[in-house]
Design a protein around this nucleic acid. Structure first.
Lengths: 206, 206
DNA sequence: AAAAAAGTAAACTGCTTAGTGCATTTTATT
DNA sequence: AATAAAATGCACTAAGCAGTTTACTTTTTT
């Protein structure tokens, strides 16, 4: 069945796209509703017909993009595959998530908007942090299987997170460094897995 | 010789302190010049007598605090001390720098101000990044001494930086996590050094 | 074709804020 | 004590911006 995109739908989409782009480029405060309407090729009144206030538009964007980005991935531990190979693949998934345009743009809008409203930011972030469990589960399985020995699982997870985000998220969030190339992503996954495993993996000729 | 702090000096200092605090709390945009004058217990006109524009005040603060923060530390490699001990101490210095109130507050003001002016941010940051050489030098010495083997020195430095900043800078910058306690700082230094060395240090009974 | 729903343009309200002008008072210098 | 320098209070300008109102046109639905 055809969605039958009405004019209203088209206008709405134009507004959302314009907002996404403008917020990401100029920030929420730097984007006036007049400017936004102009970019969206839409009357300002139409913007207000779809979103009662600017804040509502901002929150809609953040939540909507967020849920789109958060398609959680399934991955499971294998007791036969080499750890390096498995961990590397897992990290690669995480890296791809962070380096995705959608994710980074969203993060920029959200952090820019919430930079001085840190309470709200925490609230919003709490609602999704539950997804961080893939790595967690895998590490636990590997530990139970006796192939990893970690005295403090939480700390080890954090170490992985720091390495990944430090390479492909924080510098890009502030545009201090350009986005990683495909090779660079792969390199980060490899090196990070190797570094991590050489500390936590038990010695065993494979 | 006595500095002879005139009233003018006192007022100026009050302005600077008020700005430091207000910018850090409410952000540059969230701090009006009227509010600032009120906090500083000073006439708004006096603020403008000391700083022609708000922007000038912002940039003064950032540059001034920056140079204060950047008292570079001296540290040298020893071929007899255990690597873990040396690296741990070096990391601890770095951690202390990042977790210092001055540094964090400055970073918040700067990032908040430059979040959507990334070109200017890069320009400003370029002028000080030369200081990142302490770790660099140490790693090179250890490598030349044959006790570390790193295929890519730059990448290894980055790994250390990710681990340190990921633990004690980024989350605190956005107030997603509270500042580290003294024990926590020590723990991060220990764990990070251990993780790093177990990958890059050559086997040798000490 | 008529009615309802949505969009448009432009002027307008109300509020905030950076920065100024000026007459007056306070502090520092000679 | 006289003069210069800095600080003050307060009204003011000019600009920007979220959100509204109005009178009118286009699209969708029935």
């Amino acid at each position: 069945m055809k969605p039958h995109r009405t004019r209203s739908d088209i206008k709405r989409e134009a507004i959302i796209n314009a907002a996404k782009q403008a917020f990401q480029t100029y920030g929420v405060n730097g984007t006036t509703m007049d400017k936004l309407a102009q970019v969206a090729q839409v009357s300002k009144r139409t913007v207000y017909n779809h979103f009662c206030t600017k804040e509502e538009l901002v929150m809609y964007l953040i939540r909507e993009l967020w849920s789109k980005t958060m398609l959680s991935v399934a991955a499971s531990y294998s007791s036969v595959q080499p750890l390096q190979q498995q961990l590397q693949a897992l990290l690669r998934i995480e890296i791809d998530l962070f380096t995705g345009d959608e994710y980074l743009e969203l993060a920029r809008v959200a952090f820019g908007h919430f930079f001085y409203k840190t309470d709200k930011l925490r609230d919003e972030i709490c609602q999704f942090t539950a997804q961080e469990t893939v790595l967690h589960k895998w590490l636990k399985c590997a530990q139970d299987d006796g192939r990893l020995v970690m005295d403090d699982l939480q700390a080890s997870i954090k170490e992985l997170g720091c390495l990944v985000r430090g390479h492909c998220f924080w510098p890009q969030l502030l545009k201090l460094e350009p986005p990683l190339s495909e090779e660079a992503k792969q390199r980060v996954a490899e090196r990070t897995a190797a570094l991590f495993l050489s500390h936590y993996a038990v010695e065993r000729p494979e």
